[in-house]
């Protein structure tokens, strides 16, 4: 197209230059028309240049938007990532707090506070006629002697050993915790005296099979138990008092035994 036009433009230019047409009215008109044509062409070229520049600017603006968007997206992703980590940190801290609120630091068993709450719950359920439960209190025999002859560190290790042997043979829904000192409480939800005695028998057997070993020497450890079951309408204090008394009788009966109440 442009070559054709160039060819044509050359033809027109030649005609305008041709002496034989000088002074002819059509030569004059063609000259004026050609001048106008040049003017329009220049204007068109200018318009195109402006439009191109404008288009380029828009394109660059779009690109910078994309860049900014991508930068902000990266920043946002980083904030979210860091924020998630902080949340995770808080969650772990919270779990740790919950654990220390309900567990004994030394043995890792439930602590007295948690056991007391659970005992209250079981008592409430039983009082409303939803089942039965049994309770046992265990005490390490002659624990003071272990502490006195080996020191408190070994005493603590002995308690941890006992705690493991107490917890291992229990059923999933039975509870076991450190009541204080060398005393442990066992709660058998849904169980009666018979069930509790069977559980305790398994514990005593296990303690025989897996004795506490210190410095390569077996240190025989035994437990005395008091066991009782829930009686309709009684309070937490009443059942705790009865199980404690049973334990006391077991101690007086020569230790390493079980007394029911």
């Amino acid at each position: 197209m442009s070559e054709d036009r160039d060819e044509f433009e050359r033809e027109v230019a030649a005609l305008l230059q041709d002496p034989q047409w000088q002074g002819h009215p059509l030569q004059h008109a063609l000259q004026a028309l050609n001048a106008r044509y040049d003017e329009r062409g220049a204007m068109m070229a200018r318009l195109t240049r402006i439009a191109d520049r404008y288009q380029l600017a828009e394109r660059e603006r779009g690109l910078s938007f994309v860049q900014r968007y991508e930068r902000q997206l990266r920043q946002l992703e980083k904030i979210i990532r860091i924020s998630d980590q902080y949340q995770q940190m808080l969650r772990e801290l919270n779990e740790e707090l919950q654990r220390t609120a309900s567990h004994d630091l030394l043995t890792g068993l439930f602590n007295r506070r948690y056991l007391y709450d659970r005992l209250g719950e079981e008592l409430g359920k039983a009082a409303r006629g939803h089942g039965q439960f049994a309770l046992a209190m265990a005490d390490v025999d002659l624990f003071k002697q272990i502490n006195d002859s080996y020191g408190h560190d070994i005493g603590d290790a002995a308690l941890c050993h006992v705690a493991r042997q107490l917890a291992a043979p229990l059923r999933e829904y039975d509870l076991c915790g450190r009541w204080g000192g060398e005393e442990f409480l066992l709660l058998f939800p849904g169980g009666d005296l018979e069930a509790a005695q069977q559980g305790i028998q398994r514990i005593r057997q296990r303690l025989q099979d897996e004795p506490f070993v210190h410095d390569g020497r077996v240190c025989p450890l035994t437990l005395s138990f008091g066991v009782t079951e829930y009686r309709q309408g009684e309070s937490t204090t009443a059942i705790l008092k009865r199980v404690d008394e049973a334990l006391y009788r077991a101690k007086h009966a020569g230790r390493d035994c079980l007394e029911c109440a």
Binding site: I79, I82, S83, Y86, M89, L90
Partner: peptide, 9 residues
């Protein structure tokens, strides 16, 4: 120690 989301920002 602990930063909430706007503090991180």
């Amino acid at each position: 120690l602990y930063l909430n989301t706007s503090s991180i920002r």
